[in-house]
Nucleic acid binder design. Sequence first.
DNA 1: CATGAATGAGTTTTCATTCAT
DNA 2: GATGAATGAAAACTCATTCAT
Lengths: 193, 193, 193, 193
Amino acid sequence: MNPRAPQQKRGRERVAALMASASALFVEKGFDATTMTEIAARAGAAIGTLYLFFPTKEALAQAILAENAESLSAQLDALQEQATGLAPAAIADALFELLGRFVGTHPAYSALLDLPGDEGWRRKMRGRRREQIAALFAQAEPPLPAGQAERLAVIVPQLMRIPLALVGEKRLRDGVLEELRSMLARHLEVDTD
Amino acid sequence: MNPRAPQQKRGRERVAALMASASALFVEKGFDATTMTEIAARAGAAIGTLYLFFPTKEALAQAILAENAESLSAQLDALQEQATGLAPAAIADALFELLGRFVGTHPAYSALLDLPGDEGWRRKMRGRRREQIAALFAQAEPPLPAGQAERLAVIVPQLMRIPLALVGEKRLRDGVLEELRSMLARHLEVDTD
Amino acid sequence: MNPRAPQQKRGRERVAALMASASALFVEKGFDATTMTEIAARAGAAIGTLYLFFPTKEALAQAILAENAESLSAQLDALQEQATGLAPAAIADALFELLGRFVGTHPAYSALLDLPGDEGWRRKMRGRRREQIAALFAQAEPPLPAGQAERLAVIVPQLMRIPLALVGEKRLRDGVLEELRSMLARHLEVDTD
Amino acid sequence: MNPRAPQQKRGRERVAALMASASALFVEKGFDATTMTEIAARAGAAIGTLYLFFPTKEALAQAILAENAESLSAQLDALQEQATGLAPAAIADALFELLGRFVGTHPAYSALLDLPGDEGWRRKMRGRRREQIAALFAQAEPPLPAGQAERLAVIVPQLMRIPLALVGEKRLRDGVLEELRSMLARHLEVDTD
DNA sequence: CATGAATGAGTTTTCATTCAT
DNA sequence: GATGAATGAAAACTCATTCAT
């Protein structure tokens, strides 16, 4: 009736396979165009098995998103410890690299983050991410002007999604990424003049 | 494929109302979650009337997108004439303002431009927009380094979409917009050192 | 989206056919065992047509029930006018005949009246029926003891459902009906001694 | 078809718990709306365990019904011995009390006895109950008119179910029960005039 | 041009039942 | 005996699209 956390090893493997299948399809075709039947099939499972663990398609997306967000959050935590007292531009650079790697390895995160019609859960998740990044910038030395940490917490993650649209244009994509990186770095350096 | 061009005035008004209704709904609920019946109803028309002008839902979205893109293209053309010989930062500033106004007045453009599963038409439209913006930067004085105009043509439109997510947080939204503007301006100034 | 009342003659005929089909199947196999597909098929309609008028299976049952209840209510109203000043036993007899005919011509009423899991709408409908029958007995001459009208309003409709279970045993069924009739009549006569 | 008779004491307790769980749920939500998973869960057992004892959902219902019917049958047998030569009204009174207690303590009996789509087993069970009650009335002194015992065997059990619908209206419920009792008693007294 | 009833393929979701452990 | 993951047929429901009026 209710989806339950799998209690045996086989179950945990199943869940992982289902989430991987769903992630890949969501990225390839988008949330709406992906069917639950397709997700189950690609994972080699029956449709009923999928619903055994995820009561709705939306819940499945949420589970994937939560897992990705958890991973991102942990990485940001780790960065937080190393970033104390660094210059703003150095923090930006480190964050840039972290996020760049993350969006590459977790494409479903970007694909699922702004589906229409949420208003609740996802908003909170984005809020937490913003707080975490703002805290990162808040410990820069010299300190940033008031409010800038919060603004950067909004901007930087979005910057990282820009190159994602350039699949198949690798040259341009790398150039854009570097352009963004340098733009952000200079922005934070210049402010210290 | 193409909507039959309505010959009568009444017909043209009908089409405008249908496209306005569709645009609003696409923005509010997303393309997939919006039904053709709903679109017709909000425009005060019957479902059959909607299909009289737009043979498929996709064609309707394309018509809206084409109209918006036409408007954007015309505005960029106008800017092109005024921008000859301007400094890069000045061009960026002008483009920034133009795009900022455009995404505000044409929210459907952003909502429809990057639907998943896109292999053709939309990709071309984005390509044309990139060329137009690149051409704008190409006439800056002093000239930009090789390839930067193309990279900016990718980046700047995406920057403008960042504040869109901040509905209901007006203070932050305005701050973010200004932060982006100054970041871009400095980026282009610094390069001239 | 929302089910609408049909606006043309064809539509009204369709709705009638669908309700007739559903009524018959609910009586034959019960509410749960009847599928929407089956209902549509028996009415010669597509499944989508059924959902055009009734948004859920429950709503379909309710519409049937409401129509039947409306009919019963009207018949009870008519009886009310003729029953003023009659003896209790005479009222009972008339009511008995009315209800006997009704359950025979509206078998879906009994089949749908006490589905599990309602708590709301059906309760109100039964309440109204009780009030109407109680009002009928309330005008008997001589008057009934306090509260008896309300008790009879509960009892009599249920009595009428007893013979329904005896399909295929016509002899017994008729005997049971007559036994119930006389039992009720005597009960009300005796009270006047 | 038949549940494997559990050999161990633990097994018998298990079966009892499962049947109790199922009975309660069948009464609360109806047969169709109750799931096998739910039944097992409420009994604190695994779904596999439930199927260990009952091969199908229908078999489970039958087992419950059979047990209840067994109990009722035994009680009617006991009454049979005490009722020889009693007046019809006295028999009716005793039966009334017996059945009233029974439907109160065995609510699943009523809930399961007349599921729709019934062509076999349940029909026979009802038939046996009718015969037993008819036999009870058959030994009344003075004897009842021909056929009346059979008719009462149909009527009396149904009368007892009428107050069941009045949960939460205790006052009315008790009044209705008494009204039915007296109606039946007078009916049988009057006939002897 | 306009209407809205009608269609039916496609999707999500449920649940009785099986079976490997 | 006991478990619970796994199955998949079947049901409810949606909606883009068609077409007779």
